[in-house]
Amino acid sequence: MKRVLLTVLLVLIVLTACEAKNRTVDYPVITKSFPEIIEPHNPEQAEQSGDVVVLHGGMRNGDKWNTFMKNVKKKQQDQVRVTMYTIEGGAIIHELIYDGSAIQSTYDNSRDAYGSKQEVKTDICKGIGTMKSEQGRIFYVLTGCEKEENPFWMPKL
């Protein structure tokens, strides 16, 4: 399973490659703050906090993801926090803030045993698209990202 995940991540990195621009980026204004993360941030706590929770084979609070996607299509500001859980139970958190033209993506895998204990990483992306894996699964991905680090991907359920 780890090999499949690593393969999917590698494919996503290649597919979402974008040209870095030599310009200063104004990060989108946060419209509201996300709820505080309650540790150890298990799936039940994440769901109660309003996160879109992605577990192997399922999603909780999927209506929040659908609303976010509709607002992005309508170019209306919105934000969503997506918490994905690894097979081992580690939480990987993505906070996406859409300002009407770009998406600020904040990536935090510090709660995953195989993740980085370093700082949270932020990137600016132009939009959200879909891609199909070699196994035929469809994933949501961020597109046109400036840094190309830690790409966002989420299974389309």
Rank of each mutant, 00 (worst) to 15 (best):
I87F: 09
P35I: 02
N66R: 08
K132R: 13
T31C: 08
R23D: 07
R3Y: 02
E88N: 10
I124G: 12
L10A: 13
K132Y: 10
K75F: 00
V14I: 14
T83K: 08
Q104E: 14
Y85K: 02
K117G: 15
S105I: 01
D51W: 02
V141E: 11
A91E: 10
I37S: 08
Q76L: 01
S33P: 02
K70Q: 11
A46K: 00
H56R: 14
V120M: 06
A17F: 12
V80S: 11
L15D: 04
E44L: 12
F34E: 05
T122A: 03
M84T: 09
P35H: 04
L55G: 06
E39F: 14
L10Y: 06
W65D: 07
S49E: 10
K132E: 15
Q48E: 13
Q79W: 03
N61I: 08
L12R: 06
N66I: 00
M69H: 10
I103M: 06
E36S: 12
N109Q: 09
N66V: 01
I93W: 13
E119Q: 12
A113S: 12
V53Q: 05
V11C: 07
V8R: 05
W153P: 11
D26W: 01
R111N: 13
E44D: 10
G115S: 03
H94D: 12
A102R: 14
I30T: 06
E95A: 12
Y27T: 04
A20I: 00
V11F: 00
F139S: 07
T83L: 01
L55K: 03
D112R: 00
G136P: 13
W65L: 14
N22T: 00
V8L: 01
G100V: 03
R60N: 03
M59G: 04
E119R: 03
Y98C: 04
V82L: 11
E44W: 08
G144E: 05
M1E: 14
E39I: 00
D99R: 00
M59Y: 07
L6R: 13
S49N: 04
T86D: 02
G127S: 12
E47Q: 11
P35W: 00
G57C: 07
Y98H: 02
Q79L: 03
E134H: 07
E146K: 14
T86A: 00
V8K: 09
L142C: 12
Y140A: 03
S105N: 10
V141L: 13
E119N: 06
G62A: 12
W65P: 00
E95N: 10
D63C: 01
N150L: 15
V11G: 09
R81F: 04
G100T: 08
E47A: 06
